[in-house]
């Protein structure tokens, strides 16, 4: 097997901040081991926003959980590596991982209420996080907390800092969560569906805020979402996941404008847009397979109109496809395609 030259399109070159290589996550169960992530590879450069998009069950949230060491048992990393700034973090002990979490990698969850402790004021939570990870005096930490709340757009932060989470509205709470994620100046934020629980008008504000702050703080973001619209507006690059694999990865503009993988094409066509009045939306028939019934070959082949013999037998690797990289035999170099298929 040739050495996978995975993702040479990360910005700037040099060492990527986060590098995920052939990540494999398994869930042993008594009916056999379920392969939840298979051969997932991607890079995130410093200050870059990588969108990870896919339908429910595609493994996108699981990827985030694996990186930050929060896989729910019995899930376990069964292969591959996760490198943060060149250092393998998938083998770190629980204690070392805990120190890393919040300090170098922060997490933003879907429901802001679950990420905030209802018994402490937002100020106390911010200060405590900072004191844990940074060498600051409590007074300086509070000063910083105030500045952060102001930065994430909380009006009258001097009063709001002493309020409890339930006294904030949904959108304001998610702003507090973003402040909490940023307060130790992490290098990477993993945002798992950060806007899904919010109203559409609030979603737009949170996305804009996240994008602006990460640019200012030069924080890299792994944005996990099912919403292609959110990705299109926020991310620099996008990885499309299907049945536990990355099927396409590339710059957002390219993937949105000219998706290469048949699945991505179907996904884009399925989104109703305002501009054109179509009678019917493009639909991908069927549904994503369950983990215990992933078909052999390319997992997408039963739903793929372009599938040919090879797709049913061999699982494709990511290969250059126009301006993006797609895991699809359609883009295999001719000399690699055995017999051509079609």
């Amino acid at each position: 097997m040739n050495v996978p030259h995975i993702d040479q399109m990360n910005a700037g070159g040099g060492l990527p901040l986060l590098s995920v290589r052939r990540l494999r996550v398994e869930f042993p169960s008594r009916r056999g081991t379920l392969l939840a992530l298979d051969d997932v590879s991607f890079d995130i450069a410093r200050g870059e926003v990588l969108g990870v998009v896919g339908e429910s069950g595609a493994g996108k949230s699981l990827t985030g959980a694996a990186i930050i060491g929060l896989l729910e048992p019995p899930g376990r990393i069964a292969g591959g590596e996760i490198l943060l700034d060149g250092e393998a973090i998938h083998e770190l002990s629980g204690e070392a991982m805990r120190r890393l979490r919040g300090r170098r990698i922060a997490m933003i969850f879907q429901d802001p209420l679950t990420s905030l402790n209802p018994l402490y004021t937002v100020g106390e939570q911010l200060v405590e996080t900072m004191l844990t990870h940074l060498e600051l005096t409590p007074a300086a930490a509070r000063e910083r907390a105030l500045a952060l709340l102001d930065e994430v757009g909380i009006p009258a932060p001097a009063q709001r800092i002493d309020h409890y989470p339930h006294q904030f509205s949904g959108g304001m709470r998610q702003r507090v969560v973003i402040a909490l994620a940023l307060c130790a100046e992490p290098e990477l934020i993993i945002a798992d569906e950060p806007t899904t629980a919010l109203d559409v008008s609030v979603q737009a504000q949170i996305i804009a805020l996240l994008r602006r702050l990460c640019r200012q703080h030069h924080t890299a973001v792994m944005l996990v979402t099912h919403d292609m619209g959110v990705i299109a507006e926020t991310a620099d690059r996008v990885a499309v996941m299907y049945a536990g694999r990355v099927v396409e990865i590339g710059p957002v503009d390219e993937v949105v404008r000219a998706p290469a993988h048949p699945y991505t094409r179907g996904l884009m066509g399925a989104i109703p847009v305002l501009g054109d009045e179509v009678e019917r939306l493009v639909q991908i028939d069927g549904a994503m397979p369950r983990l215990d019934a992933i078909p052999p070959g390319c997992a997408f082949h039963p739903r793929c109109a372009a599938a040919f013999a090879r797709c049913r037998i061999e699982c494709p690797e990511l290969q250059p496809a126009g301006a993006t990289r797609a895991a699809c035999w359609l883009y295999a170099p001719a000399e690699m395609a055995e017999g051509g298929g079609r």
């Binding site: 066509g269 639909q283 983990l291």
Partner: peptide, 27 residues
Amino acid sequence: TATAPGARDETPRDVGPAGEPQGRELA
């Protein structure tokens, strides 16, 4: 999580013909 492999749809598939990647404009 998605279930049962393949819904039985009689509708034709709308993904563009193989080989010529289609932009969404050509939906």
